[in-house]
Write a protein that binds this DNA or RNA. Structure first.
Length: 509
RNA sequence: GCCAGAGUAGCUCAGUGGUAGAGCAGAGGACUCAUAAGCCUUUGGUCGCCGGUUCAAUCCCGGCCUCUGGCACCA
């Protein structure tokens, strides 16, 4: 059994979850569910990044301890997961002991090996913003913007990780492993980036400036800053579970690919003598055009409201169907409604409804056996075989949007098959052939529906469960076996017709 | 500025060296099991612009224009 360990990026808890967070969880979940279906031993990790200056500041503003602040916000992120039908196996918080222990151990090891050194630097510091400034922060006339308050040049010592000495190694690794980053054009961007010389990475902050972090094991006067804390969660969460590392795939947003995940992380692991993950999947962003309009009407669209309004599965369907992994997409309520109405309600939901209804009306609620296989049936079988093979290949390559498109083409073909057979006409005929054809058509549409459901269950898990239930069907444990056209539903008692995706009330004109 | 990606039907996009495709929207039709759903037919494009290669280019090459994204670290 192949081990497949998959992670999302951990969310920084200084703010509330938004569409981008939701999408990343859903995408990762779809991959995780698909791999489980394919028989892999999957471990799915997500979590939160809880240290850092912004959290410290936000807590201070609220007048509560940072831990209390982060307990609160982390709970909000965690609550998102069940709402989106996320099937994660673990949830890590960087303030947990298991994480801190690993971070300190790795830092100590690197320090002992001489991969980390201390150096002194001077720079311009804004006390008000509690940060060092760069030349690009200056106004055109060379002065500092108002918001920084008093700016003074100060000297500070910090610890640095020897990033630069591994640059060549990383270039070589990426050149040899063309598919380390998906999509491939992102990997090209990484290599492009590596054409410029790297600087060593500052990994500490003096405690006077930042308290809310993990203390360096070799110097109590400092905490580690950002990357050694955040990135190591992928490893710290599974350090005590043999076999999971390095079977890892990291799903992240394109904004943290270069340099953190594609440069710092591989080099950190390599320097620490750990194996590299299998790959990185960098997704794009959701854009929201027309945000201006909704703002002016005081009616800004919160995409998560759609979950409450239409259910998690419809939301998941839209995210996965609309976005080509890696590229950016636009999110509007209008687009959501177009797909919801035409694809989920009219095409798919209605197929469920009419199939149940006809089985009840023409066969006493029991799925009959297929007796004939004429051209219409053969064509639908053949289309299914083709669709199934395409869907598996596409999903393996993270092309979930195209896989859904193919599946829905099959759903449409099933609707067309029903029109061709017109069971409601056959039901009026007393001829033996017509009656056999009626039973065959009912069996065929039910089987096609069952298969279509199996093909989308990683995207719409609770919808799949619901449909299987009303079909009186309990799927077997091996997904591949569920994808074979057969007579699995023969004799199944179906439930009364139901509306799965109710059409929303039309707004009054 | 540098790098990458993209400019194809009203909208969202697919696609191939040989007189352009899908879905949605629009129009028409037959039907009725069904969520006024489904099915069938259909309107609609000088495939960003200018050159070049070729018997032939939307697809190859060169140039240009426009859009999108990336360009870290700097303690």
């Amino acid at each position: 059994m192949k081990t497949f360990y998959i992670t999302t990026a951990i969310d920084y808890v200084n703010g509330s979850p938004h569409l981008g967070h939701a999408y990343e969880k859903v995408l990762t979940d779809v991959i995780a569910r698909f791999r489980r279906q394919m028989g892999d031993k999957v471990w799915f990790l997500t979590g939160v990044d809880e240290h850092g200056q912004k959290v410290q500041q936000s807590a201070k503003k609220r007048g509560i301890p940072p831990q209390e602040f982060t307990d609160e916000v982390s709970a909000e992120f965690r609550a998102l997961l069940p709402k989106l039908n996320i099937s994660n196996d673990d949830f890590i918080r960087t303030t947990e002991g298991r994480h801190k222990t690993v971070v300190r151990a790795v830092l100590q090891q690197l320090f002992d090996k001489g991969e980390i050194y201390k150096a002194e630097y001077k720079g311009f510091y804004s006390t008000r913003q509690e940060q060092f400034l760069q030349d690009k922060d200056r106004l055109p006339d060379g002065s500092w913007p108002e918001i920084f308050g008093e700016v003074t040049e100060i000297v500070e010592s910090n610890y640095f990780f020897k990033l630069r000495q591994y640059q060549e190694w990383l270039v070589e690794f990426l050149t040899k492993n063309e598919n380390f980053v998906f999509p491939q054009f992102r990997q090209k961007q990484v290599l492009e980036f590596l054409k410029e010389p790297l600087n060593d990475l500052c990994i500490s902050r003096p405690r006077e400036r930042l308290e809310w972090g993990i203390t360096l094991p070799f110097d109590e006067g400092y905490v580690t800053y950002v990357w050694f804390d955040a990135l190591l969660n992928y490893y710290s969460a599974v350090a005590d579970q043999p076999g999971l590392w390095p079977a890892a795939y990291h799903v992240i947003g394109k904004d943290i690919l270069v340099p953190p995940h594609a440069v710092y992380w591989p080099i950190m692991l390599h320097a620490a003598g750990l194996e590299l993950p299998r790959g990185i999947i960098a997704h794009g962003w959701w854009l929201q055009r027309g945000a201006k309009m909704s703002k002016s009407t005081g009616n800004a669209l919160n995409p998560l409201d759609l979950v409450a309004e239409f259910g998690a599965d419809a939301f998941r369907y839209f995210l996965i169907r609309e976005m080509n992994v890696g590229q950016d997409s636009d999110f509007t309520r209008e687009q959501f409604l177009v797909r919801y109405n035409s694809e989920l309600a009219n095409n798919f939901g209605n197929l469920v409804n009419r199939t149940l209804n006809m089985t009840n009306r023409f066969a006493g609620a029991t799925v009959p056996a297929a007796e004939l296989a004429e051209d219409a049936e053969k064509e639908l079988h053949a289309l299914w075989e083709k669709t199934r093979d395409e869907v598996i290949l596409l999903c393996e390559g993270f092309q979930f949007h195209t896989a859904l498109e193919k599946t829905f083409f099959f759903i449409t073909a099933t609707n067309a098959y029903i029109e061709k057979r017109a069971p409601w006409k056959l039901g009026k005929s007393a001829e033996a052939h017509d009656q056999a054809l009626l039973r065959t058509s009912l069996a065929t549409m039910a089987e096609a529906l069952r298969l279509g459901v199996a093909a989308i269950q990683h995207v719409m898990p609770s919808t799949a469960d619901k449909i299987n239930a009303v079909l009186g069907y309990a799927p077997g444990a091996i997904w591949r076996d569920e994808l074979t056209w057969g007579a699995k539903l023969t004799g199944a008692k179906v439930a009364e017709a139901l509306v799965l995706f109710p059409r929303p009330e039309k707004p009054k004109a």
